[in-house]
């Protein structure tokens, strides 16, 4: 059996003794605006996490503490939400995240070849970031673009009907971008 739970626990060893990283002015304002949409501030947790991630690329323990304080929750409560969702990163990621769809239609249309070509080209495994911090590869569940399979998100752009060579081309472009 695959020790899934153990893996998860090891990946997220949040240390709440670390210092709080206060929300910056933009984060404060954006989170305050989201809170007004709901009858209780806790409902803005996911938006708050996304706002912070938009600013620094991922969500650090210190920012989890800051969100918790702002939304009147414990850091563990906020972390339990943060770790539940695929698109909240609790570790630093590269400047460009390549989310490679590994679900059924893309798998039929050549996902395995794409994954192999990309990991070889960048010399990293799935889930890893290149040494220069430019690119992270994440396998991702169905992107809802099965009519264009196989697909990937390169940053916030959806790339269609990929071949190993077209994907490698996109990865090279991402690597050339300033960090």
């Amino acid at each position: 059996m695959t020790p899934i739970i153990a893996t998860d626990a090891a990946a997220h060893c949040a240390d709440w003794r670390l210092q709080i990283e206060p929300l910056n002015e933009y984060e404060e304002t954006a989170i305050a605006a989201e809170i007004t949409h709901y009858p209780q501030p806790q409902a803005a947790t996911i938006e708050a996490l996304k706002i912070v991630q938009q600013q620094q690329g991922w969500v650090s323990d210190g920012k989890i503490k800051a969100i918790a304080q702002r939304l009147h929750m414990s850091p563990d409560e906020v972390d339990s939400v943060a770790t539940f969702y695929n698109k909240i990163y609790r570790q630093p990621v590269g400047t460009t995240v390549i989310s490679l769809c590994d679900s059924v239609s893309c798998w039929i249309m050549g996902y395995q070849g794409l994954a192999q070509a990309l990991t070889q080209e960048l010399n990293i495994a799935l889930g890893e970031t290149t040494a220069d911090g430019a690119v992270t590869i994440l396998p991702t569940p169905c992107l809802g673009a099965c009519d264009h399979a196989p697909v990937a998100m390169v940053g916030d752009q959806r790339a269609h009907k990929l071949t190993p060579s077209s994907l490698i081309e996109l990865a090279r472009l991402a690597q050339e971008q300033p960090l």
Partner: peptide
């Protein structure tokens, strides 16, 4: 199954 499942799981837990 070329893609190691444990590794994928870890990749996702980012």
């Amino acid at each position: 199954p070329v893609v190691n499942m444990d590794l994928e799981k870890e990749a996702r837990s980012i």
